[in-house]
Simulated assay, not measured.
Amino acid sequence: MYKILVACRAGVGSSLMLKIKTQQVIKENNFPIEVEHGSLDSLNGFNGDAVETVIDVADELKQKNLKFDVIGIRNVVDRNEIKTALEQFIASKEK
């Protein structure tokens, strides 16, 4: 089981919508993923496999060489985009 933190700067708007859509995709596809939700401040204590966030925040986080993967999503309500991103994440872990 993989653990993903869905986060944005404040942890209120875009990340909450992204969390809901991500949970729908996980359920529909039986992905082995559990989701946590928070703001970027949550990254400090996060002990999981990846952070999922909007693309501009993801680009910033990728520059920081974090200990977990960063998944960037352009459209937080596009379940197809989320599904593709999660499939790529799972495939990268199963290599």
Rank of each mutant, 00 (worst) to 15 (best):
G48S: 08
I73G: 02
E52S: 06
L61A: 03
N65K: 12
D56I: 09
G72V: 05
A91S: 14
L66Q: 05
V77M: 11
K93R: 15
Q63T: 12
L43E: 01
N75P: 01
K67H: 11
K64Q: 10
N75C: 05
E87G: 07
D69C: 00
K62V: 12
L86D: 07
T84N: 13
I73D: 00
I55D: 14
F68H: 07
N47E: 15
K83W: 00
A85Q: 13
F68E: 08
F89D: 04
N44D: 14
D49G: 13
E94P: 02
V77S: 12
L61N: 01
G48D: 11
N44P: 05
G72Y: 03
I73Y: 02
I71T: 01
V77H: 11
N44L: 14
K64S: 12
A91V: 06
V76S: 05
I82K: 00
L43M: 04
T53S: 13
D69Y: 00
K64E: 11
F89S: 10
L61F: 00
I82A: 00
N75W: 07
G45C: 08
L43T: 10
K93D: 13
L43P: 07
I55L: 06
V76R: 04
Q63P: 01
S92F: 06
D56R: 11
Q63D: 12
N65M: 10
N80Q: 09
A50E: 05
E87I: 06
L43Q: 02
K62A: 11
K83V: 00
D78G: 03
I73M: 07
N44R: 12
I71R: 01
D78H: 01
N44V: 12
N75M: 10
N75L: 04
D49I: 14
N65P: 03
L66R: 11
D56F: 14
A58N: 05
N47T: 15
T53I: 15
E94T: 12
L66S: 11
Q63W: 03
L66H: 14
G45E: 14
N65F: 10
K67S: 14
N65T: 06
K64C: 13
L86A: 07
G72D: 03
N65W: 06
N80R: 04
E52D: 04
T84A: 13
F46W: 11
L86F: 03
K62N: 15
N80E: 05
N47Q: 15
Q88Y: 07
G48T: 08
L61M: 10
R74K: 09
D59G: 09
F46N: 05
F46S: 02
N44K: 14
D69G: 02
N47F: 14
F89V: 04
T53K: 06
D59H: 07
T53G: 07
V57I: 15
T53E: 13
D59P: 04
A85N: 10
F68P: 07
